[in-house]
């Protein structure tokens, strides 16, 4: 089967001349459709850079990134914006909700930009709000709801367009453990039932244990890859901790 995301020799460097900083070096990997993949690594390893590059928010210095059959590394700005709109979804640590819009309007926005008919927008928004359990909050404003509710709103916004792939950057970073668990369960349920492809950057081993596969990066390079396989989530969690300990990651964060 053709992989959904194919990353081929991606490099990202900042600066010029002698002061070059290599944020990403020769990164290559693939993600299949319906996978829930985690990206882990210590601070400054290049996790967020990788996510931004894959998410077409930033350009790689060299290399190819195929999403489906499109090479997003070679696309022009305007085409990229449309591509993001039609095929990608984003969840950010700080939610990135627009505080002048209601919860409903926030979720409507990506569909409105894609010129979806009003009736269809209505149906889709209601369905996704149900999935994330925020149906009663639809007419509230972001400042009136809790962090967990905000993140579920942001997730609804990311998923309402049924994107090919969802990029989540530390989605649980600002949440308490209860809200974090709720969100992660919702995401993993969606991954199972709707076959959504999700790529999540996190430094939290607990959050990562919801994934099926985790790739580790260190100093801008891929260092290790672990699969959940048939392990329970708890076993997988232990495995992740061991890997983190071995590469000197932020084990402290989870204790």
């Amino acid at each position: 089967m053709q992989p959904l995301l194919k990353v081929n020799n991606v490099n990202k460097t900042y600066g010029k001349g002698t002061q070059v900083f290599k944020a990403l070096q020769n990164i290559s990997f693939t993600v299949d459709e319906g996978e829930f993949i985690g990206v882990m690594g210590p601070s400054g390893a290049g996790k967020s850079t990788l996510l931004n590059v894959l998410a077409t928010i930033d350009n790689p210095t060299s290399g190819d990134i195929f999403i489906g059959s499109d090479n997003v590394a070679k696309m022009k700005d305007k085409a990229l914006a449309d591509f993001r709109r039609d095929h990608l979804g984003f969840i950010f640590q700080d939610y990135n909700l627009l505080d002048s819009l209601t919860v409903r309007e926030n979720i409507v926005l990506p569909l409105a930009i894609a010129k979806t008919p009003v009736k269809e927008i209505d149906e889709r928004v209601n369905r996704i709000a149900e999935t994330f359990g925020i149906k009663d909050l639809l007419s509230k404003y972001p400042y009136q709801i809790s962090g967990g509710q905000k993140q579920r709103t942001a997730s609804s916004r990311a998923l309402v367009t049924t994107p090919k792939i969802i990029f989540a950057d530390e989605p649980t970073g600002a949440l308490d453990s209860k809200s974090a668990t709720d969100l992660l369960e919702s995401l993993s349920r969606l991954n199972e039932t709707e076959q959504s492809t999700i790529m999540m950057v996190t430094h939290d081993a607990y959050a990562a244990s919801f994934c099926q596969r985790i790739i580790f990066i260190q100093d801008g390079k891929l260092s290790k890859e672990v699969m959940r396989g048939t392990q329970t989530r708890k076993q997988f969690f232990q495995q992740i901790l061991q890997v983190l300990a071995s590469i000197g990651g932020e084990v402290n964060d989870v204790i």
């Binding site: 928010i57 700005d77 305007k78 914006a81 993001r84 709109r85 984003f90 926005l109 990506p110 930009i113």
Partner: peptide, 15 residues
């Protein structure tokens, strides 16, 4: 920042 969010969501320059 709001417009940066829009950019990430996939709003093109023309819009």
């Amino acid at each position: 920042d709001k417009y940066t969010i829009l950019y990430k969501i996939g709003v093109n320059d023309q819009q």
